[in-house]
Design a protein around this nucleic acid. Structure first.
Length: 421
RNA sequence: GUGGCUGUAGUUCAGUUGGUUAGAACACCUGAUUGUGAUUCAGGGGGUCGUGGGUUCAAGUCCCAUCAGCCACCCCA
């Protein structure tokens, strides 16, 4: 074991793995762009109060999972545990809320939560998220959900995914549901598992989602959120569903879906899978109409989601459906000072034409340079020694076949530009 | 924070009821004469068996502690 190791739950992403991440992120960018979203980049560190206020004082994220510290200027700062609050903060602070209240934004980057790591769950993890501000229309929820379904299903061809949707009510109708639920739970509190007894106090809706068999049986006739929806929530949810149907996005309604963050209301959805061990959600999102105002901005509604990038990568690895274009590169074997002098300008020219070129910095034997080229995975080797120089030619060898041909130096740029385009 | 499983070469692992100098595959390095990789052949380097204690004539193997990794609970993307 080496002396310095990465922090627990924080992993290196090494080549060739990095190429897969680039490919995935590029696909997401292209997809979002086709729906009219723009990228926003916010700092990784925010003032702690931003999260305690938006995410919720009693959520487990705020209570025990945040990487918080006081800096040398006595400011309480936190490594962002999620992406929405910073985007909302920026939306308000930049004046975007006043200038262009309708905004469709996306972001991608690292988030930090101090949990015990396990499969699909890390202390530094990455999310790709989107937010729509300025519209309370159900069409926004539906098209946004359709977009992420497009990305996962149509672009990435992931099998065994399911889209589950729910409405968790609004400030108008949820309180009554919660009161009824709490009364109901209190009446049978002693029979519930210890986890549920704790959940009762903190997040009663979670009790409905307990995996314990006994709890499930006991709660079969528990009140459900849909019995309490106000007219607005009811019609909103109906319209979201209508549009999902119109767009041929398959979904199932699950009234037990809950949100872990306080700011959510109405639409809540998850894309789940059975192939991630104990983790099920790959994507989660919902509507948060009160959040912008709560953070000091105008009363602008919002809706968004976040994709767990590591979880998505695990699925892609499993399904093998992420295609990464294989890079084709050329390796130059330059024998001696004269060859270097003559060919380095050509190499530069090739690179200017977008061809990936490498050469051996060590002035080694041809054998060693061939070996080097093979190890780098080069497709071709261009061999240049005194004999070639004298005739202003090179040897171009294709490694996979072993074929080798003589070519004039002047033709190199056009030859490889075409091959690698 | 709680529980379970696992720590042997760079990597993946084997190591029989404790018993001589701890092995394999792959990777790495060198060579098979002149300027040709991969393939083939012949050699080679590399491990204080996670760490620290203990039991024993003897510990990679048994016991305890500790650390790390993985998985699960809680919770979540």
């Amino acid at each position: 074991m080496t002396k310095y190791t990465a922090v627990k739950g924080m992993n290196d992403c090494l080549p060739p793995e990095t190429r897969k991440w680039q490919a995935l992120e590029q696909l997401a960018r292209d997809t979002f762009a086709s729906y009219g979203y723009s990228e926003i980049r916010t700092p990784i560190v925010e003032k702690t109060a931003l999260f305690t206020r938006s995410v919720g004082e009693t959520t487990s994220i705020v209570e025990k999972e945040m990487y918080s510290f006081v800096d040398q200027g006595d400011e309480a700062l936190t490594l962002r545990p999620e992406g929405t609050a910073p985007v909302v903060r920026s939306y308000i602070e930049s004046g975007m809320a006043n200038q262009h209240p309708n905004a469709k934004l996306y972001y991608m980057g690292p988030m930090f939560r101090r949990e015990r790591p396990q499969k699909g769950r890390y202390r530094q993890f990455h999310q790709i998220g989107v937010e729509i501000f300025g519209t309370a229309a159900p069409a926004a929820d539906a098209e946004m959900i359709a977009m992420v379904w497009d990305l996962l299903d149509h672009q990435l061809h992931l099998p065994d995914l399911a889209l589950e949707i729910n409405s968790i009510g609004c400030a108008g109708c949820r309180p009554e549901f919660l009161r009824t639920l709490e009364t109901y739970l209190a009446s049978r509190a002693e029979k519930l598992c210890t986890d549920c007894q704790r959940r009762m106090k903190k997040n009663p809706m979670r009790v409905l989602d307990c995996k314990n068999e006994k709890c499930r049986e006991l709660l079969q006739d528990a009140p459900s959120i849909h019995e309490f929806w106000c007219e607005g929530c009811q019609s909103h949810f109906t319209e979201v569903q209508a549009m999902l149907k119109l767009l041929h996005v398959p979904y199932i309604v699950n009234h037990r879906i809950v949100r872990g963050l306080d700011y959510y209301m109405r639409t809540a959805f998850e894309v789940i899978t059975t192939r991630l061990g104990a983790q099920s959600a790959v994507v989660a999102g919902g509507r948060y109409d009160g959040l912008v105002r709560q953070l000091g901005g105008p009363d602008v509604p919002g809706v968004g989601f976040a994709i767990g990038e590591e979880r998505l990568m695990l699925l892609l690895e499993d399904a093998g459906t992420l295609s990464v274009k294989e890079e084709q590169h050329v390796c130059f074997a330059l024998l001696g000072e004269a060859a270097r002098k003559a060919l380095l300008p050509v190499i530069r020219e090739l690179r200017h034409h977008g061809v990936s070129v490498q050469w051996d910095y060590e002035d080694r034997s041809l054998k060693a340079q061939m070996k080097h080229a093979d190890k780098l995975g080069a497709k071709w080797v261009v061999i240049v020694g005194d004999e070639e120089l004298a005739n202003k030619v090179v040897q171009v060898k294709t490694l996979a076949t072993g074929d080798q041909e003589t070519m004039s130096i002047d033709k190199l740029v056009t030859y490889f530009s075409e091959k690698c385009s």
